[in-house]
Write a protein that binds this DNA or RNA. Structure first.
Length: 290
DNA sequence: AACCAGGTTATGC
DNA sequence: GCATAACATGGT
């Protein structure tokens, strides 16, 4: 399968982001290739994504139908945000002193998404108030125990657990994995919302932004930061700003010379010229930290 | 050794 | 309404 690369798309830059030094259990990056197990209607498929000068190339580990192919392509396009025309964003960054080098430094880096909304929400809860190394550690324990997997060439690949599988976990097992009781409850709440069909990505995408926020914030464990983060990474809203995020605060301080912990007003002022591209500016600012 | 991490909710004034 | 504690543990 092939996807034509649009302008302002740098596959290697995207891969470097995926491979930025954390132990990631849901995909593996090897130099110029990323492999990941995904779920399509017909079942699980291991896909391998690489790139040449004109295309993104996607292959599957087994025979797939035309319908499967469509779902796989759609997954990759979503994950790598392939369809977005970045021209305007790049022009905006060049126009402003503080960001004028970004188009060269981060050329073609796309806002890498989390296609599965359930995974995105759980990941936020897992990462709440702990360092990312530890967050990856406990996520790996969760995925290894409850996520479906297949073995290809002696290598095991996992998908993120389903809401049903996490709804039925033994809480003591999660304690043993070093989840806090609070995180365990939050993950339970989110699983329940998906199982009761109070929450699913397709329906959420049909709502307006404020309606989406209300739906998300109604669940105990999802606060403003998380609602915003999944809005950016999964629902693909382009106007998200991670207010109060420690990383964003630090990068704003370094790049825009704001105070160490800028208030909402200050942040809005910085983002104002990038209206419509807030999520991308936020993402690139995070990138300046690594 | 203390302080903080991709936060959120419960509680107290 | 706003400040503060509790959560759990590893990294720096």
């Amino acid at each position: 399968m092939k996807i034509a690369k649009p302008i302002h798309f740098n596959f290697q830059a995207c891969l470097d982001f995926l491979n930025r030094g954390y132990d990631e259990c849901l995909y593996s990056v090897n130099e110029s290739v990323v492999r990941r197990l995904i779920r399509v209607t017909s079942g699980l498929v291991l896909i391998e994504i690489s790139s040449d000068s004109v295309n993104i190339n996607v292959s599957a580990h087994r025979i797939v139908s035309k319908t499967d192919e469509k779902e796989i392509i759609s997954y990759v396009m979503d994950w790598f945000d392939v369809e977005r025309d970045m021209t305007e964003f790049y022009a905006l960054m060049k126009k402003h002193q503080q960001t004028k080098d970004f188009p060269i430094q981060y050329q073609g880096l796309r806002l890498m998404g989390i296609v599965d909304l359930f995974e995105a929400l759980c990941w936020c809860v897992i990462g709440q108030q702990i360092n990312l190394t530890f967050a990856h550690k406990i996520k790996t324990r969760l995925v290894n125990k409850y996520g479906e997997s297949i073995k290809v060439d002696g290598q095991k690949y996992h998908v993120f657990p389903t809401p049903h599988s996490l709804l039925n976990v033994n809480k003591e097992d999660l304690v043993a994995m070093q989840f806090s009781k609070q995180k365990i409850n939050y993950i339970h709440n989110i699983s329940q919302a998906f199982c009761n069909n109070e929450l699913n990505k397709n329906d959420l995408l049909k709502l307006t932004k404020p309606q989406q926020m209300d739906k998300l914030l109604a669940i105990k464990g999802i606060g403003p930061w998380t609602a915003n983060y999944v809005s950016m990474k999964s629902l693909r809203d382009m106007t998200c700003i991670a207010y109060g995020d420690t990383g964003l605060s630090l990068s704003l301080h370094q790049v825009f010379n704001t105070e160490r912990k800028p208030d909402k007003n200050t942040i809005d002022k910085v983002f104002k010229p990038f209206a419509g591209w807030e999520s991308y500016l936020n993402f690139y600012l995070w990138k300046t930290l690594s």
